[in-house]
Design a protein around this nucleic acid. Sequence first.
DNA 1: TATGAATGAGTCTTCATTCAT
DNA 2: AATGAATGAAGACTCATTCAT
Lengths: 212, 212, 212, 212
Amino acid sequence: MGNVRQPIKKKAIATKEMIIDKGFELICNNGYHSVNTASIAKYANISTGNVYQYFHDKHEILLDGLNKYLGSIMFPFIEILEKESDLKNNFPVAIKRVILKTIEVKKDYKKAYHELLSLENSDLEVFKIFKNKELEATNKVNDILTKSGYNLDNQKQKAHFLINIINLVCEELNYHQHEEFNYDAMLNEVIRLLMCLFYNCPNCRIQKNITF
Amino acid sequence: MGNVRQPIKKKAIATKEMIIDKGFELICNNGYHSVNTASIAKYANISTGNVYQYFHDKHEILLDGLNKYLGSIMFPFIEILEKESDLKNNFPVAIKRVILKTIEVKKDYKKAYHELLSLENSDLEVFKIFKNKELEATNKVNDILTKSGYNLDNQKQKAHFLINIINLVCEELNYHQHEEFNYDAMLNEVIRLLMCLFYNCPNCRIQKNITF
Amino acid sequence: MGNVRQPIKKKAIATKEMIIDKGFELICNNGYHSVNTASIAKYANISTGNVYQYFHDKHEILLDGLNKYLGSIMFPFIEILEKESDLKNNFPVAIKRVILKTIEVKKDYKKAYHELLSLENSDLEVFKIFKNKELEATNKVNDILTKSGYNLDNQKQKAHFLINIINLVCEELNYHQHEEFNYDAMLNEVIRLLMCLFYNCPNCRIQKNITF
Amino acid sequence: MGNVRQPIKKKAIATKEMIIDKGFELICNNGYHSVNTASIAKYANISTGNVYQYFHDKHEILLDGLNKYLGSIMFPFIEILEKESDLKNNFPVAIKRVILKTIEVKKDYKKAYHELLSLENSDLEVFKIFKNKELEATNKVNDILTKSGYNLDNQKQKAHFLINIINLVCEELNYHQHEEFNYDAMLNEVIRLLMCLFYNCPNCRIQKNITF
DNA sequence: TATGAATGAGTCTTCATTCAT
DNA sequence: AATGAATGAAGACTCATTCAT
């Protein structure tokens, strides 16, 4: 594998970014295995060889693209949550709004979403980036919760769980629609569950003492 | 694409099954893209050309393998749950046992699990098989719940949710370990959540009436 | 690097040999680096892919070709020497005849000769094959000498030296002609030297006792 | 192919020499085909494009390097021989010393030696430079012999032969070691041969009159 | 002169599929 | 039905050289 260059001149830096952006776009839309370096070069308006000035191989383009964009594709939820000013006193309404907005944002990422999940599960390095981004997201949510006045046992795990639940719901609603399901009811159930998770529920408190 | 034969003689049927089994095994362990037809043929103890007597193409082997084995790989949970005799009166303990057993079973499927998730997200036909199997699983769980004496609102959705949550937890515990998390606490939280989902919780009942 | 097949059917065995023969011929005539697998395939009247059924890569074709042909290209001398019936009693005349015949045979290998020497010096595996063939040749010459009635000190080294000297002369006369040299005289000098090497020369016997 | 500049300013001359030196060093150590112009430029501390200010192509760097350094790599023997003051009266001891010193010097050139031999045999222009340098060396040795008081028939050819034999021995001892050979005996045989070549040997004188 | 970015033809290699027997 | 040989299109990557600044 040849050496790669660090772009120095302005135009070259732009070229490198262009390769990441266009390459990642193609990969997300058409699938990593269906995209070849020639098409990336063409789409980025450069020659094939130029790709290899800045990247060891096609894979590296993918990884750079993931590091640049994965957060906003997989966890747009964070940014949306950050804008909720009165989360603690208004949890169910706020969280429902957040979920619905997240679903909307994720609608644009349908193809990318599937392709990236596919890569996460077939490529160890991609998997690691996912884990890192997920951890980052968890920490951010935890911070938001703390800033919003929460101070819970196992709060970080709960933040993690929140993220996973939201993503699950978004997947269900955006990509996995089973026609016979009543998704509105499901959404309310989910919010009820999250209430149990984030608020002291006397019933649940009792259950806590049950050893299982 | 040549025509394929429907095997009639016993030996031919056995050959076809052998191709499915060995091919699917190789795909699960090494990845669909890394396995070529020559190695499948070799592993199945037949000649390369003979594969195409029974299958239009490599892809068909995958699909047949999925139809045959996907259920037991992705939803071993069902079989385990079926054996719990006293689910309703003993939910938290029973469900914890079920989860732990499921985790154990899934440990053996680590490679297959990732590869199949990868294919689910990159291959529409695989995706459809997943959806079918998931629906089947949901219906079975719903039946089990009914037989166990449950009669809940949105029971099917809840069954669906139960499956998703279990799978999420198994993934977390088997494949996605973040070192800093306390997985024991997380497991208990999950069970608490499932209690909220399957039992009337006064606190939650109140919340139900909140419009969000 | 993919797996290779052992040809089983007659035609396939012929195909493999054809690849070795035609590939080696092209390499010898045009140079290893100038020959590509496509041209080998074309010259052997097969498809590019078929080359890789029997060889891991281009390099393996070279090595197989060397093992098959290097001996007769580099050491045709042996076969020629074998035919001399009265070597011991007629050494100078016989050895001159052998040298001249060897030169004639080697004239046909001019291109091959240079290319192979080039590869010997740039490719460790080729180098090793050269060494093996050279040792083989040395042993054969040693046997011929013994059969011809020689029984000398360090006879094997002398055989080795004989080969090297012959090759040197052939190179000089066939490929390295400096116009200003009198090659006929040189040839006679060489034969004189070989006499010194293979016969008891009183003068030299004295020198033997000199410690240097 | 663009035109090249003849460097006039001191710095430019230094740059050109740097390219030759560093380029030739890389080629000798890593092989002509494995070294690319980018790495030569980098190693010479200039930019890629700048190489082409001084050289038409990569090949020209090689040729310039050869013209500059080939003599001292291939024929260090000359310089060593030049220092022997009493060659004629002390031939066997002197020549043995010369050979051993030459072997020592050549030990440092192992990689270069092979690479250059490889190029000699694959590149006609390189071949020509080799021939020129060899002729130069022959003439120098001839001069040394004359100055040392020799006045032999075919003295130039003998000088040429001397060089070739020395190189052969050095190769054998430095690079081609066959474990089963007794190299000390071989060295003595070689010196004995050279005695036959450079001194009137009565036995051999007789043989001279044999017509073969 | 010098820089480093850009070019694009060329090469090896893979593999699903088809063919001949 | 079965074998294993053959096909050939396609893709990743290299690198000497030229270009724009």
